[in-house]
Amino acid sequence: MDRLWPLLAFGPTGWGDEIAAGALVTISLALATLPFGITLGLLVALAQRAENRLLSGAATVFNTVFRGLPELLTLLIVYYGGQLLLQWLLAAAGFSARVQVNAFAAGMVALGLVLAAFSAEVWAGALNSIAKGQREAGYALGLTRWQTFRLVVAPQLLRVALPGLSNNWLALLKETSLVSTIALPDLMRQTNVAVGNTKEPFFFFVIAILIYLGFSILSGGVIALLEARANRGMMRARA
């Protein structure tokens, strides 16, 4: 082991700084994807309940596709397909250029679509858990649909949806590792680079696993805090 630890040094001789930078990219990607994915998921869940058959049908197709495709395939389709689409759009606008899609953006879109499809299921369950009378009471008080949603439904929704969304977050954190395949310098990619240079795959991949595990444990702690906060109004009823 004495031979291996110096490989993790920060600076030009070790891979510590590269791996730390990769870990930062991993966390940034997950954090950037989260708001986009769960917001889209809520919209999909609302669309699924819409009376408009076209809208609810489109939402169902969206869910089926992005929950059924392997995440890796979704990512490659977004990455290469996005490139083709942009090129086609540019050509239609009269430019001819070779475009390279940004790997971070492609990762964000692909993982965001997957997160949207999975969180839509969580949102749908939470929406169902809110009694119809809550909405009706809102309307009876003269609130508009949007006000009723924002002031009556949403605060209750978040509490019910939180455990499911927490699972979605943990899955997202792990899925970010796939983005290493389109050369985004995330934790997995940087570890690969370190392995290529040092020929110490076991050591470095175990380090990467431990960092991911650390992120999961840390997330677990934050989630527990959030749940305690979301449930603070329910404490007395239970005691």
């Binding site: 792990k174 590792s177 690969n192 392995v195 076991f202 991911y212 595990l213 444990i217």
Partner: peptide, 23 residues
């Protein structure tokens, strides 16, 4: 259970596949 559920499958696969070559 915590280790295998808390880390990416890809990383686990790389430990086994590339790690084995080292031993």
């Amino acid at each position: 259970v915590y280790l295998f559920r808390g880390t990416p499958l890809l990383a686990q696969l790389f430990v086994v596949y590339y790690g084995a070559g080292q031993f």
